Amino acid sequence: MRIGTLGNGLMAEALASGWVAAGHDVMVGGRSAERAAAVAGRVGAAAGSFAEAAVYGEVVLLAVPAEVAVSVAGVVPEGKTLIDCSNALDHRDFTLAQDSVAESIGAAVAPGVRVVKAFNLAADAVWRNPPAGLGVPLCGDDGVEQVAELVRDLGCTPVAAGGLRHAKLLEATAALAIGIWVRGGDVRGMFPPLADAFGTVLPGES
C-alpha cells in the first residue's frame, strides 16, 4: 500500500517506520523539505511536500498539531483515506480544547475523503515498538478496513469503535487517560475483563 504522511514529527516517523518495515511504500510530507528528507532517510521512505504526500498515498496519515489539522487536511484529494491521530488537549487541565478534531476534519475535506480516527491513545514511543496485540480503536464511516490492515501490520489489533461521530469519545478518552497518567495513575487497571464488568449480558441487552 502507498502511504503519505502529512507531518514529519515524532508520530509520523514512528508510524512510518513500522509501515516501511511491513513492506509499504511511504512518502513523508512536510512544510520543510529538509526535515521531511531527514525523517524519510531515517525510516527508508521518500520525501515530499504536503501536497505531494497527499497525492502519493492511498492512505494519508495526518500527523500535525490539532490546531492546524483542519487546514492541512485540505490538501487531501477526493478518494483517499485520511487517518487523524491528533488530540486537541488543553494541557492546563487535560480537557479537550475543541469538541472533535476528526469531525471538524471530516466536514472540511473534499467530498469522498474517508476520515478515520486512530492511533491517538498512545505516544510516538509506543508506536516505535508497540506491544504485540495492542488494541487500536478506529472510528470512521468508511475506509476503516484499510486502516485496520495498517494496524495489523504493526502487530496490533484493530478495535471497531463506531462511526466518525464517535471520534469525539475517542478524543475524550485520550484526554482522560493522559490526565490520569500525568497524575501518576494506571489507566490499565481501570478496565476489568468484559465478563467481570458486565456479566454475560452486555449493556442494553436483555
Rank of each mutant, 00 (worst) to 15 (best):
G74L: 07
N87Q: 06
D186G: 04
L89K: 02
D142K: 13
P130H: 06
L138R: 07
S206A: 14
G112S: 12
A45C: 05
A16H: 00
V116Y: 04
V28T: 03
G30A: 08
G133P: 12
T157D: 12
V101K: 04
A45V: 05
L164I: 15
V43G: 00
M27C: 05
W127I: 08
V55G: 11
P77H: 08
V76H: 05
D142C: 06
E149M: 09
A66N: 03
V126F: 11
D186W: 06
L96Q: 10
D99W: 03
S86A: 15
C85V: 15
D142G: 05
G9W: 01
A66H: 11
G179C: 09
A123D: 13
C156H: 08
E103I: 09
G41Q: 02
A46S: 14
E149S: 15
R92L: 05
D25I: 10
P193R: 10
A174Q: 03
A107P: 11
E58P: 00
Y56T: 10
G44P: 05
G44M: 09
I180W: 08
H24R: 08
N129F: 06
V182T: 09
A88Y: 04
F191Y: 12
A108D: 03
W127T: 08
D153C: 11
P193E: 07
E145S: 15
I3H: 01
V159N: 03
A69P: 02
L121T: 14
E145N: 10
P77G: 12
I83R: 04
L10M: 12
I178P: 01
L194K: 09
L164S: 10
A177M: 14
L10H: 13
E58C: 02
A73V: 07
T173K: 03
P111I: 14
P192S: 07
V147N: 02
V26E: 00
A195P: 01
H91V: 15
P65E: 04
A172N: 06
T200A: 15
D84W: 07
V147T: 06
A102Y: 11
V201N: 11
A47E: 00
V26Y: 00
A16P: 00
F50L: 07
V64T: 04
E205Y: 14
G133T: 13
D99E: 15
V187D: 04
V147G: 03
T5V: 05
A38M: 06
E78H: 11
T173M: 14
E58I: 03
A107Q: 15
G41S: 05
P203V: 10
A47N: 00
P192C: 09
V159M: 12
